[in-house]
Design a protein around this nucleic acid. Structure first.
Lengths: 198, 198, 198, 198
DNA sequence: GATGAATGAGAGTTCATTCAT
DNA sequence: CATGAATGAACTCTCATTCAT
């Protein structure tokens, strides 16, 4: 095995891991946890069932890894346009629209997140790495509260009144039971802002 | 068979059905759909596995029946104090607090609803009877919009900005990751009101 | 309970028994032994599942009773035109055509008989009453052999070469995979006669 | 993995499949479809229940595969001595005796075939491959009819008057309710010949 | 006599996981 | 590293039969 093959293998390994995660996302988002047996994940990702246990300890580990993976992507999407550097309330509006657009443009990811977070899995949810990565969001709200822009409510309440609304609306748009124009969308973002504004 | 025994039978049958629904709620809310096999539901409700199929066509039917049952109870809880007869915004605040209290006081029901609504089951969700029973809520918002109290956004958006926030916060309170005082609670209700106020 | 009600009951009992037998025939002939659970037999015959065990010891007993019942009807059908009183070979031709017509006109009974006789049930087949009733057929062949009309082969062989052919062809006609004109039919009857003729 | 082990694996898989088919044949021929649950088939063939679904899609598929397998063996047995190359009526007599001997020497296969063909399974019976393989038999009769040896009756009728008689007699011999000497056997074969001879 | 709710063993089938190759 | 045959426990659901009413 030479340098080239090592490199190739490495690429292959990452690609294989990604293929497994993608297949898992496809199947769970489309058919739920019930509809995503390891055998189908293997078939859809073009690998053997056995090798999945090389990349992930077990099925729960695979699902948690997928969750973390998606939440990281969501995070990146939220930071488009560097909202954390903008002044309030522009920062908030950008953040909210970023979230909303991520959800709407990633229906599979959105369905998976909602399924995961409302299942008994999230024993894991308190994943430390993930919490750390989301710390800046807590801080952004904290500062807005310190400056008197935002009501003095606990962060989870603020989150529920704002970002989670984006997720909820996106879910309905994905289902096809709702459609919002750009104007309406902005109106909703401002409604969320109004909800938390002091 | 006399009048009494007829009555007793009737009670027994209803009680058995209820026992099955309760056991299902217990197990699913605690351990998820995976953790609620028919065998455990039977054991926990004190009946044989076979008889469950006398009361419900299959497991899906059982789960949907449980969902409808809970949503009907939620509806009743929302109407305590006849909010639909009160003037705006009292009607809204009552409604919101009723919902919140139902969720917090019925943690199992709340966890079940969230799991169900975020699973691939809700092909059924568009249950006609249920939609009909919730029609008054749509109408209440409709009237508030007509009178100029509420922004002209689609009902699902209004719902997401208000009642669904109550559910989300209750979920966190149930998990123990959040605690709200009565004052904070009222502040949140008013925040929701502010979100939709014209 | 007076005389009238006794009579009525008696009629009802016989009718109920017949209804059960008919439903069993319907279901088994159409869907096989697998497709005829007691619950469906009860529903189709308009009685409760429990009462079936008043008329029959168990499901095997019901099935055997149905078999005997049908074989008795077949016997009656074979004797139309009193073939046993006619001279050879008219007696044979009449008998053969009688059989054939019974099978073709009673597709459910035919399918049931074939299923029953080729299942592991016929431990019972050696039903004594039934054998006694079919004795005249054995005797008829016996006499034809004594008179030198028929080859000296065991009765089961004669039967296989003649009557069973009628059953086999009828089965195919019922399935729709074969159609015989009256001329062809007579030709087949005569072919059977030729097979056993000395 | 060396050449030997490759060969062994191949053998093992085929052997396992064969073991499953054999166990199925054993159980169904002895105790009927009812008496052959997957659990018993697994035990008798020395494999786990699960692996059966690796070799066969479901139980119906297993049973149909067994049927096709047996009919192919029967076909081979019928062609012993190359009857299709012999002149009429030798070809016929050979064919008939071949069939008869196959049935008598393979009682399990015979019982299984009869059960299968008289159950509601044979939706499959019109298996195309199988029909193709039996085409030569149709042709052999066709030619005999063309040459004026055989009556101008449809093939199914000819088959019923001849080959099916062999099956019927073999069934009785297997049950023990009939025993034929070699002389008698030949007499029956000739009786069948007489039945169809022009 | 008549009902049908109730039982519980057992049916066919699936699936996470392992391990010989 | 990679495979996929193999396991066997667990799943949903069925059904002959019983028995309180």
């Amino acid at each position: 095995m030479n340098v080239h093959s090592i490199k190739c293998d490495a690429v292959t390994e990452v690609e294989k891991r990604t293929a497994i995660l993608n297949a898992t996302l496809d199947l769970i988002s489309e058919h739920g946890f019930h509809g995503a047996p390891i055998s189908k994940i293997a078939k859809q990702s073009g690998v053997s069932a056995g090798i999945i246990y090389h990349y992930f300890a077990d099925k729960d580990d695979l699902i948690q890894a997928l969750y973390v993976h998606i939440k990281e992507h969501l995070l990146e999407a939220m930071m488009i346009g560097n909202p954390q550097d903008a002044p309030w309330p522009d920062s908030f509006i950008t953040l909210w629209l970023n979230s909303y657009h991520y959800y709407v443009r990633h229906p599979q990811q959105t369905r998976f997140i909602e399924q995961y977070e409302n299942s008994p899995y999230p024993q894991f949810e308190e994943n430390e790495d993930l919490l750390a990565k989301y710390a800046w969001l807590v801080q952004l709200i904290d500062e807005a509260q310190a400056k008197g822009y935002v009501k003095d409510l606990p962060f989870p309440v603020i989150h529920e009144l704002t970002m989670h609304v984006a997720a909820g609306l996106a879910k309905q748009q994905i289902k096809g039971s709702l459609f919002l124009t750009e104007d309406e969308l902005l109106a909703v973002a401002e409604a969320c802002l109004a909800a938390i504004a002091r």
